[in-house]
Each structure stands twice: as C-alpha cells, then as structure tokens.
Amino acid sequence: MRFHSRKWVKPEDLNPNGTLFGGRLLAWIDEEAALYTVVQLENPKIVTKYISEINFMSTAKQGDIVEVGMEVTKFGKTSITLKCEARNKMTRETILTVDNIIMVNLDETGKPKPHGKTKVEFVKDRLNTKP
C-alpha cells in the first residue's frame, strides 16, 4: 500500500476525549480517495458511492502525524474500488482500515461514465510515453 498524504493532528481535530475525532479522519480519507481517483481516472468529476465497514484499531492525539494510504483492489466499468489504511506515524500503529471504498467516474451531466482503465497508472509513466 502506498501512503500518499500526511495530516498533522491539530486542536480543532480532537474530540472531547482529547484524541482524533473519527469524523475528521473519515473526511481526510474521503478526500484522499477522491484525489487518488481523480489522478488514476484522469477526470476531476468523481463521487464517493460506497464506504464499507470501518475498523478503528487505535487513535492519535494532538501533535501526531497521520498517514493515509490507498490501494486499488478493482477496476469496474465506471468505478474504481480502493482499500485504505490510516496509521499514526508517531506510534506506528494502524488507526483504522477500510476494505472497500467505491468511487464512480462521471460525465459532464453527472451520470456514471466508463473510464476505460484496467490497471494502476503512475503519473511518471504517463509523462514518459514515447512518440
């Protein structure tokens, strides 16, 4: 799994227990899934369709750094399915895992649109295409 982003846990990210609010982490994950999908499908028009069961295993506190990792598990006709792990960079513990996040590719009118992708592509490979 590749970890693409890091977030610094700030006071506004905390719940009444003084630990990272789960909703804040889920917002970070949804944003990372969207960014990852936009890059993979080369289309800024995508939406989150489904997020499976979320398994919280540990937490983070103010000052900790949280890393969010994504991995493609399936390419559908109009969708991409991801799995996710968020981990605490300071304690090296997994904070949560999500087995399935389904992101859907959309056309200009907001309807699902086939994307034609079948494998993970890296931007560096797209830039190195030979004429």
Rank of each mutant, 00 (worst) to 15 (best):
M1H: 12
M1D: 10
M1S: 13
R2F: 09
H4S: 12
H4M: 05
R6Q: 12
W8R: 12
W8Y: 13
E12Q: 08
E12W: 06
D13S: 08
D13Y: 11
N15M: 11
P16A: 05
N17K: 13
R24T: 13
L25G: 02
L26P: 02
L26R: 06
A27L: 00
W28I: 04
W28G: 08
D30C: 03
D30Y: 03
D30P: 04
D30M: 03
D30G: 09
E32Q: 15
A34N: 00
A34I: 09
Y36T: 07
T37M: 09
T37H: 01
V38D: 00
V39F: 06
P44C: 02
K45V: 00
I46C: 06
Y50D: 01
Y50I: 00
S52A: 14
S52T: 06
M57D: 05
S58W: 01
S58D: 14
A60P: 04
A60C: 08
G63C: 11
D64N: 15
V68K: 04
E71F: 01
V72T: 09
T73D: 08
T73F: 02
T73V: 14
G76K: 02
K77Y: 08
I80G: 00
T81H: 13
C84Q: 10
C84Y: 04
C84M: 12
A86L: 05
R87N: 09
R87M: 15
M90G: 02
M90Y: 04
T91M: 14
E93P: 01
T94Y: 05
L96G: 03
V98T: 01
I102G: 01
M103Y: 09
M103E: 10
N105D: 12
L106Q: 13
L106W: 12
T109R: 10
K111V: 11
H115V: 13
K117V: 09
K117S: 09
T118S: 06
T118V: 01
V120C: 02
E121T: 10
E121Q: 10
F122M: 04
V123Y: 10
K124A: 05
L127Y: 00
